[in-house]
């Protein structure tokens, strides 16, 4: 079981309020991703849940039990660190055994669990090596193995993939998602990469400066961002945000249109512009369009390969159904 409730949890470092009081409930078995730009307090929030930092106010409950004052060892949570934090002087087996040893588990049960974890994570081949002899991806697996043997109430991941190269990252992303669907244990995952958030999460928590900007499923956030910040943060490439006269026509401060919701024509359309750089990914093509008469340059995403040269004139037409409108305070207008 792993239902985690944060009740008016706040954190101050001296005079600096890193996290103003916030409420959040994480249901049992949920995969929750904390996402936000660096310095938004997402890692601090995770460390508060872990017990590695004291809260300055509020209450943390794990499965209904008040855990605010509990030391990390007693909370029944497992954590995977960004640096993996493997014990360099122990073999992979001993690393994984360490939490079980600390819990005073009988040797046989320890062995059964370690072997099981090793099988799930394909660690068997290097179970007697030391972390120094492993590659980044292998170390990551060991760190996860050390977390799963404990059968914790919840897993905490602190940017676990950011030290891996791009190809490996995609693979590990998939593995963690599969692990979640197999174990069905609560997972809290911190990342600054919104792609990771979108692909892995049941529920995304978008944080900025310690505030929760929005909580929702990936598609909710994509379709109905609550404010300009979430609109700009979720989605890749970024949503085009347009202020000024064009927004005024729609009776608001800012309008937003995602690059994939703009159609392109060489002859007619709503906004006329000139193509700058175009990026060909094969599956998609991105255009950066200047001189549209709008204050901002526009990014456009077109499916497939489209021939268009720098300097060509294009006409852009937004899909009016997919237009987002925001008021003076940056909040969504429906």
């Amino acid at each position: 079981m792993g239902r985690i409730t944060l009740d008016k949890v706040a954190k101050r470092f001296g005079e600096v309020e890193v996290i103003p009081p916030l409420d959040l409930t994480i249901e049992d078995g949920e995969f929750v991703v904390f996402v936000g730009p660096s310095g938004c307090g997402k890692s601090t929030l995770l460390r508060l849940i872990a017990g590695l930092e004291d809260v300055s106010g509020g209450e943390i409950r794990i499965d209904g039990q008040n855990a605010t004052e509990m030391p990390p060892a007693k909370r029944g949570l497992a954590m995977v660190f960004q640096s993996y934090a493997l014990y360099p002087h122990m073999t992979v087996r001993k690393n994984i055994a360490f939490p079980l040893k600390m819990a005073g588990m009988p040797e046989e049960e320890q062995k059964r669990r370690i072997d099981n974890a090793a099988k799930i994570l394909n660690l068997t081949d290097y179970i007697d090596r030391r972390p120094g002899q492993l590659s980044g991806g292998q170390r990551q697996r060991v760190a996860i193995g050390r977390a799963i043997v404990r059968e914790p109430a919840a897993f905490l991941f602190d940017e676990p993939l950011s030290n891996l190269d791009a190809a490996l990252r995609v693979g590990m992303r998939l593995e963690i998602t599969e692990l979640h669907s197999r174990l069905k244990t609560t997972m809290i995952y911190v990342t600054h990469d919104q792609v990771e958030a979108m692909t892995m999460a049941d529920k995304i928590v978008v944080l900025r400066a310690g505030h929760i900007e929005q909580v929702g499923s990936p598609l909710e956030l994509y379709r109905t961002p609550r404010n300009v910040f979430v609109a700009g943060f979720i989605g890749s490439p970024k949503m085009n945000l347009i202020e000024g006269g064009e927004a005024g026509k729609h009776g608001c401060k800012t309008i937003g249109i995602r690059p994939e919701h703009i159609s392109v024509s060489p002859t007619e359309g709503m906004w006329k512009g000139r193509v700058g750089v175009s990026e060909h990914l094969g599956s998609d093509t991105f255009f950066y369009v200047h001189e549209t008469g709008l204050r901002e340059d526009m990014t456009v995403r077109v499916s497939g390969e489209v021939e268009m040269k720098s300097g060509d004139t294009v006409y852009l037409t937004p899909d009016m159904d997919k237009l987002h409108r925001f008021d003076d305070a940056g909040l969504r207008l429906s």
Partner: peptide
């Protein structure tokens, strides 16, 4: 991180110093 990992793994201060810090 490594000491914190030990704490998360259920080690108290004494075990943290004996099993993790000192050998390292």
């Amino acid at each position: 991180d490594i000491l914190e990992a030990a704490r998360m793994d259920g080690a108290n201060l004494r075990n943290e110093i004996i099993y993790i810090l000192t050998p390292m």
